[in-house]
């Protein structure tokens, strides 16, 4: 078997381990990939991330739901933990950038944000996750500190979503060019627009696609 064939097979196995939410196998295969001297960046993008891409498709087709996404995410991170320390260079892609994200002040519901983070992670974004119940000033501070391209705000409660227009105004006042995305159960595209956000995504899978679109504009 030639090396490229062997590489391809290993990458496919990593992909499959993520889709099968097999955390242990994902880590083992990523270790094997390093031993074979395969570029860890390929392992991430063509193995792990490709797996999460398939997972996203299964979620959109309603074959996978949140429990499956969470376990696939665990398999992704198990592989990333192995490969990341060995990645020497970052590759520039025009639709990938830096993103600050968090669940807005007054809201502790972070399962959606966690999944959004995973999908961005898989797509190669540089992520600054502020967690949940994030004070409005923190979003501005973090964007300022990191010069993030996008700030993503999440809310599950109708009460906490009321903080969104305020923080959007604060962020835009500081950096009119920053892209702001919002999401969460009570949000709609109309409300997002009304609040002054640049984009809305209904779930974690579409969030990455929307962010990439916005980056190209």
């Amino acid at each position: 078997m030639t090396l490229p064939e062997k590489t391809q097979k290993l990458l496919k196995q990593i992909h499959d381990a993520v889709v099968a939410y097999d955390e242990e196998t994902s880590a083992q295969l990523c270790n094997a990939l390093l031993k074979e001297g395969i570029d860890p960046y390929d392992g991430i993008m063509k193995g792990l991330a490709a797996g999460m891409d398939t997972v996203g498709g299964l979620y959109e087709k309603k074959e996978y739901f949140v429990p499956e996404l969470l376990l696939c995410s665990d398999a992704l991170y198990a592989g990333l933990d192995v490969l990341r320390p060995h990645v020497k260079t970052t590759r520039e892609k025009e639709d990938v950038g830096k993103i600050v994200m968090g669940v807005i002040e007054g809201d502790i519901h972070d399962i959606g944000k966690t999944l959004v983070k995973t999908m961005f992670e898989a797509a190669g974004w540089e992520i600054y996750d502020l967690g949940k119940d994030v004070k409005l000033d923190r979003f501005v501070e973090e964007q300022k500190k990191t010069s993030a391209d996008i700030v993503a705000l999440s809310a599950l409660m109708t009460t906490s979503m009321l903080a969104m227009p305020k923080v959007i105004e604060m962020l835009k006042a500081h950096d009119p060019g920053v892209i702001i995305m919002v999401g969460g159960a009570p949000l709609t595209p109309e409300i997002a627009q009304h609040y002054g956000a640049d984009g809305y995504a209904r779930d974690a899978v579409t969030a990455v696609k929307k962010a990439s679109e916005l980056m190209k504009k």
């Binding site: 807005i104 002040e105 007054g106 809201d107 502790i108 119940d133 409660m157 109708t158 009460t159 906490s160 009321l162 903080a163």
Partner: peptide
């Protein structure tokens, strides 16, 4: 508590 909380917080 505060301006944006509308339910019990765990």
């Amino acid at each position: 508590q505060g301006e944006y909380e509308g339910a019990l917080v765990v």
